[in-house]
Amino acid sequence: MPPSFLHQPTKFLYPAATLTLWLTTALITLNDNLVETSFIQGTSMSPSLSPAYHTTGHRDLVLWNKWISHSNGPGSLKRGDIVLFRSPTRPDCNAVKRVVGLEGDRITLDPQRRPAGDSSPESRVWDAMEANADPHGGSGGVVVPPGHIWVEGDFWRKSQDSNAYGPLSKSLVMGKAMLVLWPWERCATRPWVGYESATRVVEGRVGRKGDEVGLVDAIRAG
């Protein structure tokens, strides 16, 4: 009689348990360090990602590169990248937004993107940023401090982004979008490339020693 699961359970349970343990640990380590996939919930990134979320509820599956550079070298974040980060207001939630400004950049606040409400905390943050907007150089706007970026959703009407909580610390960023994996029609594409954000950004000088330049810029700005 051939060996069966009923007659010799240990003969199958042991390899199955070993394989499960190997796969789980390898997947956790891979997700922490190299790549991760996640669905895009919400409409804040439409039309780039999950454009049909508000009608059909279809979500896009995105592959994230988590091996990102910690410096201002060639492998670091750029304007126009889509980033995955821990929400600064809700620590256990992740958020997905577009990088609009890097450190040292001067962002002109868009009144269209002001968070709704007269006395909500978000709108008060926005009002304070607007009031403290730096008049240096005649253009005004918010200067992104060193080690921070300015993130915004593509859908200006409904997006909880830097307009609500200010510049985002780069340490919160977990990954950078590589590809869309699902739905099948848009598999292996990058639909966010080429989108022009309407927010006006005066680019700061971020060279190889971007930290120092950004710091100098921030000090000059007061």
């Binding site: 910690h70 410096s71 401090p145 060193p146 080690g147 921070h148 610390s169 780069k170 340490s171 930290d211």
Partner: peptide, 8 residues
């Protein structure tokens, strides 16, 4: 904690 200004 991770430093908010200095990455890494």
């Amino acid at each position: 904690f991770k430093h908010p200004d200095k990455m890494g």
